[in-house]
């Protein structure tokens, strides 16, 4: 009997072993399926601006990619995300605020699924990376160091650059600006403001001590009234001013630097590869500035402030506003 029991136990053990093996195999197959699933692109809506970044992402990534569209309707999210999750995606690349926020919510209990966001203006406002380790992204603002470097290319006389900002909205940008200023050997003159109405006073306080001004895309600084005022003052005070967006340069600010939108797809592909290969975690990658940039230069303003940039410097601009 004991032998039988022993025999039964042996069979049970063998069966248990086989079952465990099968379970391991199945779980292995499951994770392989998850890892082997497509990379899914989720668009917030049918914005034409997304088409080139998506095409570039697809071409540069070299892995199967499927594209889904939220069509601007957050109510579509549950059905769409169910469909996406059924594919066991290897990574989500989200474009725009709605898609990125939906992906954040839907991966709250799926820490193994990386989410890479891009083209989200003021991403900090949505708390996209707060409380989750699976989210990384590309900032919608150009790195301040790139703006300083272009200021220096236009005018070697740049030594001190002013920046006016709101601490709660642009604290991180100003930290990056301090770091970049150190690398490039320039001094940063900072003024923090709480309300848009405080900008003029902050500017006047430092204007005599600076050669240039970094105009941040900070909602407290960046009002129509403030930009119009700054544009006139920068010209009057012969300051090298740099802002963000083509319109700012078109309106008369000396130069502006924007992210190169189609290139966001190429950068996202490189970041996605780094995470998918297991070389870096999403949290370690964090939120990177856009590396591809477009420089807009207003030569009429340059002329008015007595600046005569070299032909080589002008040719580096993606677009020049010169009245022609």
């Amino acid at each position: 009997m004991a032998g039988w029991r022993f025999k039964i136990n042996r069979i049970q053990r063998v069966l248990l072993g086989v079952a465990a093996g099968l379970l391991l195999l199945l779980s292995g197959a499951g994770s392989a399926a998850a890892a082997g699933g497509p990379v899914v692109v989720v668009l917030s809506d049918a914005e034409a601006a997304y088409s080139l970044p998506v095409a570039t992402f697809r071409a540069e990534l070299g892995l199967p990619v499927q594209v889904f569209n939220l069509e601007g309707d957050i109510d579509r999210a549950p059905a769409l995300m169910e469909k996406i999750m059924a594919l066991h995606p290897a990574l989500l690349f989200t474009l725009g605020a709605k898609a990125s926020y939906v992906a954040k919510v839907w991966t709250k209990d799926r820490p193994e699924l990386p989410v890479l966001f891009a083209m989200v203006i003021n991403w900090q406002h949505y708390g996209l990376v707060d409380g989750q380790q699976n989210i990384f992204g590309i900032d919608s603002d150009v790195e301040p160091g790139v703006q300083f470097a272009h200021m220096m290319m236009l005018s070697p006389r740049i030594k001190r650059v002013g920046v006016i900002y709101n601490t709660s909205l642009s604290g991180e940008v100003v930290t990056a600006a301090r770091k970049a200023a150190k690398v490039l050997g320039i001094e940063l003159e900072e003024r923090a403001i709480r309300h848009p109405q405080q900008l003029q006073r902050a500017y006047l306080e430092m204007v005599d001590d600076i050669d240039g001004l970094l105009i941040l895309a900070d909602p407290v600084v960046y009002t129509l009234e403030n930009i119009a005022w700054l544009q006139k003052r920068c010209m009057r005070d012969h300051l090298i001013c740099v802002g963000q967006s083509e319109n700012v340069a078109k309106l008369g600010v000396l130069m502006a630097i924007d992210p190169d939108i189609p290139n966001i797809g190429a950068q996202a592909a490189a970041m996605a590869r780094s995470v998918l290969s297991g070389h870096q975690t999403p949290a370690a990658v964090g939120v990177m500035p856009p590396l591809g940039t477009k420089l807009y230069l207003n030569l009429r303003t340059a002329d008015k402030i007595g600046l005569h940039p070299s032909r080589a410097a002008v040719d580096m601009a993606s677009q020049v506003f010169d009245g022609q």
């Binding site: 160091g145 470097a149 690398v183 290139n263 190429a266 950068q267 490189a270 590396l291 591809g292 477009k294």
Partner: peptide
């Protein structure tokens, strides 16, 4: 891990700024 950028200046600045 190659990151394609539109122009040489972008590559140089991406390196210089870390």
């Amino acid at each position: 891990n190659i990151v394609t950028v539109p122009k040489d200046a972008d590559a140089l600045l991406a390196l210089a700024l870390g």
